[in-house]
C-alpha cells in the first residue's frame, strides 16, 4: 500500500454540478478563510501606511497619500533582519534535523525490540516528556550551558530545542513504525541484513511521518522567545522572534515599523509550512490509518 492510498478520498459523487450542498460547504469554508486571513491582512495593509493613516482608518487600504514603505525601510536600517533570519534558520533546521534523526532511531527501536523489559519504561519516559513544562528547568539548563562553555551560542539553543522536541517526535514516530509490516523486516534479516540495514529498509515507509514530525517540531522552535532571550541574547545570536520582540520594545510607537517587522518575522514560517503542508498531511493520515 502506498502512502497516498486513503489520502485523497475519491469524490463520493462524480458529478461536477454545483449542488446546494457543495455551495454550502464552500460558503462555510470561505467564511473560515476570511476569519483566518482577515487579521493577518490587517497587519499587512497597515504596514504599508503612515502612522496617522493607521489610526485614522485601520481597516482601509493604503491610498496614494497614505501609502508608505517607511516602516520596511526602518526595519532594514535599524533592525538586524538578515542576521536574525540566518540564526533562526540555523537553529530551527539543525534542531529539527537532529530531532527527526534521533527520534526516528529511538522510535524504530522501541517498536522493533518491544520484547525487551526496558521498552515500556523508556516509552513511558518519552510520553511524560510530552507534557513537561521545560521552562521550569531554565536555571539548571543555564548551569549546564555555562559548564560546557556554550552559553550565548546557537548550539545551546539547538540542544535545548532538540531535547524539548524529542518526546513528542518519538511518540509520533512510533505510531508510524507500527505500520511497517513485520514480514518486510524479517525478509531483510533472512537475507543477512544487520539491524542497521534493516532499519534503513524500513525507513522509506515512514517518510511521511518524518515530514509530520518536522512540521510540528518547527512551529514552537521558530516562534520561541524564552530560550533565545536566556541562552543566546547576544546580538550576533539573536533569532527572528527575539529580534522582532526587541524591535517592538525599541519602536514602541512606530507602528509602521512594528507592523513591517511583524510581517517580515512571520513570512518564512508561513512559506515553509506551505511547502511542507502536503507532506505533513499525508504523513499524519498515514499514521492514523492503521
Amino acid at each position: 500500500m502506498t502512502s497516498l492510498a486513503g489520502y485523497k478520498p475519491k469524490p463520493v459523487a462524480d458529478d461536477r454540478r454545483w449542488t446546494a450542498e457543495r455551495v454550502l460547504v464552500h460558503v462555510i469554508l470561505l467564511g473560515f478563510v476570511v476569519l483566518a486571513l482577515g487579521p493577518i491582512f490587517v497587519v499587512i495593509i497597515n504596514s504599508l501606511k503612515t502612522t496617522p493613516a493607521i489610526f485614522g482608518g485601520p481597516f482601509s487600504l493604503p491610498t496614494a497619500e497614505t501609502f508608505s514603505l517607511d516602516g520596511y525601510v526602518r526595519v532594514f536600517t535599524r533592525g538586524n533582519f538578515i542576521a536574525n533570519y540566518s540564526n533562526s534558520l540555523i537553529v530551527t533546521v539543525s534542531a529539527v534535523v537532529l530531532t527527526v534523526l534521533l527520534s526516528t532511531l529511538a522510535a524504530y527501536a522501541l517498536v522493533e525490540y518491544r520484547l525487551t523489559a526496558l521498552v515500556p519504561i523508556l516509552t513511558g519516559l518519552f510520553l511524560i516528556g510530552v507534557m513537561l513544562p521545560i521552562r521550569l528547568g531554565t536555571i539548571p539548563i543555564i548551569k549546564i550551558m555555562v559548564a560546557w562553555g556554550i552559553m550565548d551560542t546557537l548550539l545551546a539553543l539547538i540542544l535545548v530545542y532538540t531535547a524539548m522536541s524529542i518526546p513528542l517526535a518519538v511518540t509520533l514516530m512510533m505510531t508510524y513504525f507500527r505500520t511497517v509490516p513485520t514480514e518486510l523486516k524479517e525478509a531483510a534479516r533472512m537475507d543477512g541484513a544487520n539491524e542497521w540495514q534493516t532499519f534503513l529498509i524500513a525507513l522509506p515507509l515512514v517518510r511521511p511521518g518524518l515530514a509530520a514530525v518536522a512540521t510540528v517540531t518547527m512551529l514552537p522552535i521558530w516562534n520561541d522567545l524564552w530560550f533565545p532571550l536566556i541562552l543566546a541574547p547576544g546580538k550576533a545570536n539573536q533569532t527572528v522572534t527575539l529580534g522582532v520582540q526587541q524591535f517592538v520594545g525599541q519602536f514602541l510607537n512606530d507602528y509602521p515599523a512594528l507592523l513591517a517587522a511583524l510581517t517580515l518575522g512571520a513570512m518564512p514560517l508561513v512559506l515553509l509550512f506551505t511547502v511542507f503542508s502536503r507532506q505533513f498531511i499525508s504523513g499524519l493520515s498515514q499514521g492514523y490509518s492503521k
Partner: peptide, 20 residues
C-alpha cells in the same frame, strides 16, 4: 545530505561564538 546540513548548522553556530 541530512548529516551535512546538521554539521553545517552546528559548526556555523560554533563559529559565531568564536568571533565574540
Amino acid at each position: 545530505v541530512t548529516t551535512g546540513a546538521l554539521v553545517l548548522g552546528v559548526s556555523l553556530a560554533a563559529m559565531t561564538s568564536a568571533v565574540m
